[in-house]
Amino acid sequence: MKNSQLYKGSLNTIIMKLLEENGKMYGYEITQKVKAITQGELNITEGALYPALHKLEAEGLLDVEIEKVDNRMRKYYKLTESGQKETVNRLSELEDFIRNMQSLVSPSPKLEF
């Protein structure tokens, strides 16, 4: 993953946000979606994606579904009820983070005289 240290902490939130928007998705679809949205800037590696998905599933935030597609089985992930609530929390946390980082990195000029 590009600049992995910076993105690493947000991987779970990225996954949850995508699932919130798209309902159910499978692993490969998630990697492709992230690539498409960020125009190839962010590339989630397989070695990071599946551990994150498995962890979220074990925490009860994601549920799984299996479908037979072509001649193989496909595992879909979707948010559970608690997963949906947690997504809202994590997104607002991430937004706060982005806002704070922005004001730290490029502080807006003070208009006090």
Partner: peptide, 21 residues
């Protein structure tokens, strides 16, 4: 693309997640 350890990371993380479950 799975890296030098191949599928090991995926297997280990799954083991850990299910162990916790």
């Amino acid at each position: 693309k799975f890296g030098v350890f191949g599928f090991m990371d995926v297997v280990e993380s799954r083991q850990m997640a299910l162990g916790k479950k």
